[in-house]
Design a protein around this nucleic acid. Structure first.
Lengths: 345, 345
DNA sequence: TTGTATGCGTTATCAT
DNA sequence: ATGATAACGCATACAA
């Protein structure tokens, strides 16, 4: 890698001191450098391709201009847009993004957060896994971070998130608008807050419509692997003596599997069964019967997270109180709901 | 953020010199530290939660233990698995991954590569855009990097890639196995090497089968936006007086759009038109008629790229000659080709 | 307007 | 077995 050019070598070539070169280069305030000298310095920098060593600068300033995203799985339809938007927003402010997959392992989250801090990473966006202690420790140290979900019991921690209650409500209301009244819910893993919230939105919409919540029509799966997601729950649902005429599924994978299972039993979508999923995966619009879904603007989530994080980093003294951004999902009406009675929504 | 603990403070508390603490901590060879002292030091480190400042270490050693991925668009079905695998492989070796989207802009690629080097990033994986000069400059400096495609005219540069010629050949052979002889190709953008290669594979397979290459049946689009990908070319294809009975599409998006256009004209897939795409997107298996495709093992690509890069970083003296890994794509037979005559392939 | 000296936190070289 | 000192590359307080 050759011998990296240093400011000392540059100064030697120019017959100047390192500090003059430094000042000319950085336009340091209150340091009147003659225009001639500055131009000579800048010209030499240009000609030699000199770039200051950022490790050295970081050692002095404590600023690395790096932030990190700690996420369970970056290879995930949800993560892609989010990370991309984070990168774009931080890049504009001169920050780089370090990517760290926690893989759902609490211990890894702890270790990596520690490593990243040690590395001088200036802030984190965390899809948090474990108990609160890590977060509280970071907060105590006034270390900048933003969560991807509110932390129950610690409302003072900044976060960005989607309003999954509203999402579940929108989905359920769409089924009602489609003229269905016998609405089931294929629920997600109860340990996930988003699953609990979507279910709560479902129940809320039912109550708002004056309908009873029938526990038999809320079915959770044991299996959320994409290919076979919800198959066990789907069988139970379709075997019900009193079959629903509309189903809100925790996500599009479950909905797609439900569609297949239903049609293979001779049921028609949407005539016999109206369907709506969640997440608006790229495949959903392309299914044989295009699947209605709830769309999450992951790009905006990333932009908002970056904005909060960078604000905390660059204005550590400002304490504007808890920062929270809750993004409302949007309904995407498609044929699995039948004809849209109010197409302008 | 409190006042970060330094080795000097640690030494003060222990009544030792900084260098003794450093040696005890790092198990420095040839520095006989008494077991008692070492234990005191380690205990104090444990108790205080001290972590050495990596910026300082980096300044001395020149090692940051960070590598970067420079990619056109990280939010892209191709990129997700690749980046995830890179992160996993590098993380195992104690490296972190910095993510950088070049957005297809050559100038950004130049600037960011420069920034990353300046930052002390120890190596790059580059989905390279522009002219060779950037690469040649890096190579001249013996700066470690791995390309995501061979660079024409510079075979000495390390790369990992998919064999798109073989992929195009496999796709075309599949159509032949499906009993089709009148094979068209909806080609990708001619400026992309992968598009040219897939087309070359198509032509190769035809010649191998003793069939003529009909230029009228190779149609390129002006539009590769996902939603409308290839629609112009698709119309031209379907309007041909002498319509083909099998089509190899540059990617699954084009294939999905072709499917829709064809069925809306009353054509049946696969009876009237056999289809195969490329990339094996997640939606492909879920289409009304599941779409055959060519699957690319992006995870393996990431693992291989990381392996080569880390080897170059950790053994800069070893010059094993050009490192290249070419991964053979695999055929995924689905209903859009009709019944599979040789289901074991 | 420019140069000298010092420090950032750590490790390596040389002494003791 | 441990300590003093210098060095990594840069920026800044202070001196000239």
């Amino acid at each position: 890698m050759g011998t990296p050019l240093t400011i000392a070598e540059l100064a030697r070539r120019l017959g100047l001191s390192t500090c003059t070169v430094s000042r000319a280069m950085n336009n340091t305030p209150n340091s009147r450098i003659s225009a001639a000298t500055r131009n000579r310095v800048l010209a030499e920098i240009e000609a030699s391709g000199y770039r200051p060593n950022l490790s050295a600068q970081a050692l002095i300033s404590g600023k690395t201009h790096v932030v990190a995203v700690m996420i369970i799985d970056s290879n995930n339809p949800f993560s892609g847009g989010f990370i991309h938007a984070m990168e774009e927003a931080t890049q504009k402010c001169g920050y780089h993004v370090l990517l760290c997959n926690t893989r759902g392992e609490i211990e890894r989250e702890r270790n990596e957060a520690s490593m990243l801090r040690q590395r001088g990473v200036e802030g984190l966006v965390i899809e948090h896994l474990g108990p609160a202690d890590l977060l509280l420790e970071l907060a105590k140290d006034n270390y900048p971070f933003v969560l991807l979900a509110p932390y129950p019991g610690a409302p003072e921690l900044d976060y960005v998130t989607f309003d999954d209650i509203e999402g579940g409500r929108l989905a359920t209301q769409a089924l009602l608008q489609a003229g269905r009244k016998r609405l089931a819910h294929l629920a997600g893993p109860a340990h996930l807050p988003c699953a609990r919230n979507r279910r709560a939105g479902y129940e809320l919409a039912l109550r708002e419509a004056g309908l009873a919540v029938n526990p038999d029509w809320i079915i959770a799966s044991q299996d959320y692997d994409h290919d076979t997601a919800g198959l066990d729950a789907i069988q139970r649902l379709l075997d019900l003596p009193d079959r629903p005429d509309g189903v809100f599924c925790f996500d599009d994978f479950i909905a797609a599997n439900l569609y297949e299972a239903a049609t293979s039993r001779g049921l028609k979508v949407p005539e016999d069964l109206a369907l709506i999923g969640y997440n608006d995966q790229s495949f959903s619009r392309r299914l044989a019967v295009p699947l209605a879904s709830i769309n999450l603007d992951t790009k905006r989530l990333g932009t908002e997270a970056a904005a909060i994080l960078l604000r905390k980093i660059e204005h550590p003294e400002a304490r504007p109180g808890p920062q929270a951004v809750t993004i409302t999902p949007s309904l995407v009406w498609r044929a699995s709901l039948g004809q849209n009675p109010t197409p302008n929504s």
